[in-house]
Each structure stands twice: as structure tokens, then as C-alpha cells.
Nucleic acid binder design. Structure first.
Lengths: 128, 128
DNA sequence: CTGCATCCTGGGCGATACTG
DNA sequence: CAGTATCGCCCAGGATGCAG
């Protein structure tokens, strides 16, 4: 069955607090979220915690696990525990996670290609 | 004169705190920033404060002006004061501002096209 | 109409120290 | 090696009220 179109009064204007880009931005708003996703992606979708942390300068153990827990909670990342000594763990992007890497990489590419514009922001801020 | 390539030790890894996507995300991190930019864009690049506020549900006077000040500070938005009574003001996207609308619209489009994925995040979160 | 000042709360994030 | 617990700071951002 097909759904009847939403009455106007319930339709979200394109600039609401819950509009598409904001939902995406909220997902990416954590300080380390994007870097973790991107790094996992770079490593082919999986990494062990130690590796991961060493790959991201400034990332503390606490914030790493905290962020990973959130990503796990959202179904973007899976955690696998290998039963060995010493304990070994691996975090892996789920297929959903991989999907969200796409817009992230778009941002990444845009930023890299327009680094000059980003620099101008700082210049302007410093100037005034 | 041309610049010598940056020595490796100074080159930023792609997942640094100041990498391209994060700089972009920091710009967009304010709760109302993107909605204001997007709305200005929708209106052809300019709007008066009253209009603007009424266009964005939930946006308070305070947060609007505060955000606009920041955007002005960064050179993304211009403020023009018309000398009349009662005072009239117009905010306009600068060319730099227009440039940054581009990645924003990319996000917007992606989000709109993949709303189903965004919904899954909430489902997952609610489930566990 | 437009805009600033003030007060206050929540939560993100960092530092540190401890367990298995 | 991997992970947890606790404490405390800072600041984004909401409410309210005043001013040109």
C-alpha cells in the first residue's frame, strides 16, 4: 500500500531543527566521531583499539571507547572480542556505517579541494 | 616564488583534529548556523532579521543575532543597515558565504536522499 | 523593529587513577 | 592490551528583561 502524502501542517520545512543536514551534522558533531569513522574506513573498515588510538593524535583512551560505544549503539560499528591472552578486540564498520562514510568522504574531499576557503575564514577572524 | 613542499613531519595526517572535514564541521557545528545559511540561500542570499527568524522555528532572537555576528566575523555574511524609522536591517551572504553553501547543500541533498538511513540510526538507538 | 546584557543549566570532553 | 569510574572545567545555548 502507498502512503497518503503528509498534510502540509506536518511537513517539515527544509530548515527545521530536524532537517536532513542537521541530523547528519548531529551524528558527526562529536569531536572524534568523524576521525574514527574515517580512520576505520582508511584501514579497510576495521581496526584494533590500540592501532586506532595511535592513528589519531590527541585521542584519549576514554574518548575513544566512549565514541566507539556510541557508534556501536547506533549500529555503525561492531565490536568483536577474540578470546585470547592478552585480550584482543577489533572494531569493524557495519554496512550502515560504511554508508555514512560516503557523506563524510564528500566533506573530506570538499575540504581538501577548498582548503584556501577554509583558511580565509581564519584570516577574516584574525583580521577583525 | 614557489613554496617548497612541506617536510613530512609537518604534514597533517588525514585524520587530525584540524583536518579538512573537521574544520568544515566546526564551522557548521553551531546549532543554528547551517539553518541560517541555508535559509539565506533559499531566499536568494539575503533576508531581514524578522523574516529570517520567522522562517526558522525555534530560533530565538538572541541565538539568531549571536550566530549572525559570528558569521559576519568570519566574512560569510554582511550586515546592511538602512537608515529609516523604524530601523531596517538586511543580512546578505558574501561570495565567501555562498561558497560554503555548496558543501552544505551537498549534505542537505545526501540527507534527503538517504533519510531512510538516518531513520535507522534512531531505530537502532531505540532498540538497544 | 532590531539588538545587547545577564543569569543559569546541561553536557561534552579532558585528566587522572584503577581493574582484569 | 582493553576498559571503567570519578571529578571538574568550560561553554553552547535557552530564558528573560532592557534599550534605541
Amino acid at each position: 500500500m502507498t502512503l497518503a502524502p503528509l498534510p502540509d501542517q506536518y511537513r517539515q520545512p527544509p530548515f527545521t531543527e530536524d532537517c536532513a543536514p542537521r541530523r547528519l551534522l548531529r551524528l558527526f558533531s562529536g569531536k572524534w566521531t568523524t576521525m574514527i569513522l574515517h580512520t576505520l574506513h582508511l584501514r579497510g573498515g576495521a581496526s584494533r583499539p590500540g592501532q586506532l588510538q595511535r592513528s589519531i593524535p590527541g585521542l584519549s583512551k576514554k574518548m575513544m571507547t566512549q565514541t566507539l560505544r556510541e557508534l556501536e549503539h547506533l549500529g555503525l560499528v561492531e565490536r568483536e572480542v577474540m578470546e585470547v591472552m592478552p585480550p584482543a578486540v577489533e572494531y569493524r564498520l557495519t554496512s550502515l556505517g560504511q554508508a555514512f562514510v560516503e557523506p563524510l568522504e564528500m566533506l573530506y574531499r570538499w575540504g581538501a579541494e577548498h582548503a584556501a576557503l577554509l583558511d580565509r575564514l581564519d584570516q577574516n577572524a584574525a583580521a577583525s
